[in-house]
């Protein structure tokens, strides 16, 4: 015997796959904007190196980047709000949000397990503790991007939001750091999906996972 187990709800799959290109385009248009004034660097590494600018042809496209950014922001925010509302209304949030401080310890053990430094996985429900932290964290990051983005967008009209972000220049830094965070999340996420295999990936498309009974 075997079981088809519903893993990812249909709406969640749609939210996920709509968010992916939207976030990618928000980052892309953000890079077009960032090009016009590029103050950030880590040591001698500057965002972004000349080879990166040339390879992607991102120079002199500020107006294009701003128009796209302030068009797609509506869809990105609407999809994000719909996703959060759905997880709350459907009760799915219970699986996604860590509900005890144990999650931090468990998440660390998951990391050790994934690095082959620990044999056993800690007990889990639908998502392990590391996934819970990552999937909850990314939603909070999204909220942070929207708020810091609004602070940069309207620092006079939303002066209190800019103040909450530590001022205009600080809001810009927060907005940028969160974006780098998405890129890092993406790299780890894709590596994890690749390692988890086809059955898992398929469930994000078709919803169901094949579970074999002993």
């Amino acid at each position: 015997m075997a079981k088809l187990k519903l893993k990812h709800l249909r709406a969640v799959r749609w939210f996920h796959w709509i968010n992916f290109p939207l976030l990618a385009l928000m980052i892309w248009s953000g890079v077009l904007i960032y090009w016009a004034y590029s103050p950030y660097h880590i040591g001698s590494f500057h965002f972004f190196p000349q080879w990166f600018v040339s390879a992607l042809g991102i120079n002199n496209r500020l107006a294009e980047g701003m128009a796209l950014h302030f068009t797609l922001m509506w869809l990105f925010v609407a999809n994000g709000i719909a996703y959060v509302a759905y997880t709350i209304l459907s009760g799915e949030w219970r699986y996604l949000v860590p509900r005890s401080p144990r999650a931090f310890r468990d998440a660390w053990q998951v990391v050790l397990h994934d690095l082959h430094l620990r044999r056993e996985m800690p007990a889990q429900e639908k998502y392990n503790a590391a996934q819970q932290l990552a999937y909850t964290g990314i939603v909070l990051m999204g909220a942070g991007s929207v708020l810091s983005g609004l602070a940069i967008y309207k620092p006079a009209q939303l002066w209190w939001l800019a103040a909450l972000c530590g001022g205009y220049t600080s809001a810009r830094l927060i907005h940028f750091v969160l974006t780098i965070g998405y890129v890092l999340f993406f790299l780890v996420h894709v590596a994890q999906v690749a390692m988890a295999g086809w059955n898992n990936f398929r469930s994000m498309i078709a919803g169901y996972e094949l579970v074999r009974d002993e």
């Binding site: 015997m1 079981k3 088809l4 519903l6 919803g207």
Partner: peptide, 13 residues
Amino acid sequence: SEREIELASAEAK
């Protein structure tokens, strides 16, 4: 959208 569908292996596949 049943949560679980129990079937013979071949059918499930």
